[in-house]
Write a protein that binds this DNA or RNA. Structure first.
Lengths: 231, 231
DNA sequence: AAGCTAGACATACAGCGTAAGCTTGTCAAG
DNA sequence: CTTGACAAGCTTACGCTGTATGTCTAGCTT
């Protein structure tokens, strides 16, 4: 009885989705194959197709489940504070699930008119318009903010990847290796060497702080534009 | 003689690279397989490996060949104008080769210390530092600018893709289809519908104008920060 | 002319997504 | 209690991918 039940605990779409996310979080999205996912669930690859249609659909659902968690604060009256909070929270989530960002930027199937993406877009647009942005300014502001959230984060993830790949090549301690490399490039590329040093410095801003730097640059600019347009 | 020569016109790394770029431009990067590339060159897939090592190396070289074309103007004395020109030209190039942007953001092999990416980075950092940005501000400014160039462009390409996929689903004229869809979503998502309308409007800003909007927001903010830091 | 070599070819393997058909556990109706 | 239907999982198979390995041959050197 118990054996049978354990053997045949029914797969659900939710169980497949959750396991897919955890596999992608652990081994990277490129390691997520239907066979491997099936294996992780103690099931053959083809069994998954009883629940998910195809891989693209599964991946799309994975991305949606991340975007669904974006905080869309409506209790916050100040538009800039609300958007700032939303952006930072979104950034945190996208860093936590590094595979989601790139996939969100290449929406494979936009067929669904509802869904978390749409809700997030509507919220951001509404906050801008309700804050008094005229339509054309809200249009551009939305593009800039959305692209910063997803674009900067993807950029940051790419650089983090590169750093990691860079680091784990030899058995030499990472810091020594980087220091040696910086000295090697200094004659030809002094400013790049300086930049590298800043990255290695103890109190160097982390990715989130840099994300906020760009975000505030954009928000400040938008505030100014909003004032002049309302003049 | 002539026949033999034609038959055995030697493949070179350059010929492989050029053809790979043209195939990727035409059919998309996901359609670029070693077999298909060989076919395009009138050769078996394995012959390519005499010239390129592996596919990752080829792809990396493709990206480099695009970044190599970035305009890095040193005749322009004003830092903001120079960087603006560089950014816009880079954006144009990345739109022209839509596969390059995503690959540049995920640098698979960073092993080469020289190369076009490095030169571009050094140039941007140098212009900022020579313009009087203190090191820590140059550090953040670089991140924001670089991420906007690659991040916004990738974001734009993703949306362009989605729009194209959206459009070519039925045999119905695109505009009618979109208009119908907008009306359908207006009750639930009024601001999104408005945004969609703006996209469809005749004089709607194109991607490049939107890129410049965000770029100028960032550059203006940086100008202000530079002034206060120099105070 | 003999032999070497670079460059192209052919074969093969492991892995991928997934279409099609088959087996089996579960449960309701007769 | 049997029987039939149905859903969930399994098996097989196809065409695709990158590429390791081994072979062939044209053209140059000695």
């Amino acid at each position: 009885m118990a054996t049978k039940q354990r053997r045949r605990r029914p797969l659900t779409k939710e169980r497949v989705l959750d396991k897919a996310i955890s596999v992608a979080d652990k081994d990277g999205i490129e390691a997520l194959s239907m066979r491997k996912l099936g294996q992780a669930l103690g099931v053959e690859a083809m069994s998954l197709y009883k629940h998910v249609g195809n891989k693209a659909e599964l991946v799309s659902a994975m991305v949606d489940s991340v975007i669904e968690q974006f905080e869309l604060p409506d209790d916050e009256p100040a538009w800039d504070v609300a958007i700032r909070r939303c952006a930072i929270h979104a950034h945190d989530l996208l860093i936590e699930h590094p595979w989601a960002c790139g996939l969100a930027l290449v929406p494979s199937d936009m067929r669904t008119i509802a869904g978390p993406r749409i809700r997030y877009m509507e919220w951001l647009l509404r906050r801008l318009r309700e804050a008094g942005f005229p339509p054309d300014l809200a249009y551009s502001a939305y593009h800039t903010l959305d692209s910063h959230i997803f674009g900067f984060t993807l950029w940051q993830l790419g650089h983090a990847n590169a750093t990691r790949a860079f680091a784990s090549r030899d058995d030499e301690p990472v810091e020594e290796f980087v220091a040696r490399m910086l000295e090697q490039m200094r004659p030809t590329y002094p400013y790049l060497a300086e930049h590298g040093e800043q990255h290695m410095a103890p109190g160097a801003p982390n990715g989130r702080q840099e994300f906020e730097f760009g975000l505030d640059l954009i928000l400040d600019g938008l505030k100014r534009k909003r004032r002049t347009s309302a003049r």
